[in-house]
Amino acid sequence: MTDPGFELVHGVTTVVFGPNGAGKTTLLRSIVAELDVVAYQPQQPYLFRGLLGTNLGLGLTDEQSGLAGQLARRFGLGDTLSKPASVASGGERARLSLARTLARPEEVVLLDEPLAAVDLAERPAIAAAIRESLLGRTGVIVTHELEQVVSLGDRLAIMIEGTVVQQGPVGDVMGQPASEAIARTVGVTNVYEGKVAARDGPTVTVQTDGVQMIGAGEIEIGRLVRVLVPAETVTVLQPTSAGGSARNRWAGIIRDMAPVGRLVDVVIDVGVPLRAILTPGAIDELGLEVGGDVVAAVKASSVTVVAQ
């Protein structure tokens, strides 16, 4: 295998993101082969004959088993440990394997799609447990879902066709794709950090460093979160325009405009930098230019809020 160019940064968690077939699993396996001393959870959790509880302790010392037990209870597996492995659901298998892998003592932890088989409702809690377990350790987590990138990773490595095409802090990589190919593959997404200031049913209001954002997410007030605003969902309006039903409306100044293929990447300062992807036609119609005042609008349903 050729060197995919992945940079393993110790002490933080890197999420490897890319389309199916990009070589993410292969990358993890090559890290396993190279370092050997790693805790590795393969993509398809496999349970061996016996009880779930027996499987939980496989390869672990007594002390580590205790830790795995705590994690398993935290993952809602407390009552299921005396069940035979053969009747476990996909979600139970995934959670059990994850608990066992996280309880391993190795400094480097590799997880291949750890949340893929986990029910949506359970994901935030388990993601939080993963973050906690990996605190101070070196994590590499493969996923193909953007949301998990934001909830699990400190760093992000984008893989396309067997190669890591861009890697760096999550916000940098997602907000500033290094090439058109990357932008097309993963999209351009504005990522902000903030704290939940208010909650109203399925939406929350997040106070970021400079602006308030309303987005979808059921997270309690006071929690640290990341806010995802995909660039293609940002609508740019004349400052005088009053139309539209979008709940996020931010006044700002255009700082930069750069063509990205047939489209144009527009950077607007709304208190924080916000990227929008527009067609050249829209830019002409609105008469946009660098330094001009605009209003940026985004529907709350397009904004995703993820607990950190």
């Binding site: 396993v32 805790a39 590795y40 959870q41 393969p42 993509q43 398809q44 959790p45 496999y46 061996f48 004959r49 016996g50 496989l58 390869g59 394997s97 892998t101 391993r104």
Partner: peptide, 22 residues
């Protein structure tokens, strides 16, 4: 998947064989 999981469990040779045989 079973073989990969077996490797990932980092068991000693005997335990690994036993688990596979069971």
């Amino acid at each position: 998947a079973a073989l990969e999981q077996l490797e990932a469990l980092k068991l000693n040779r005997v335990d690994r064989s036993r688990l596979a045989l069971v």
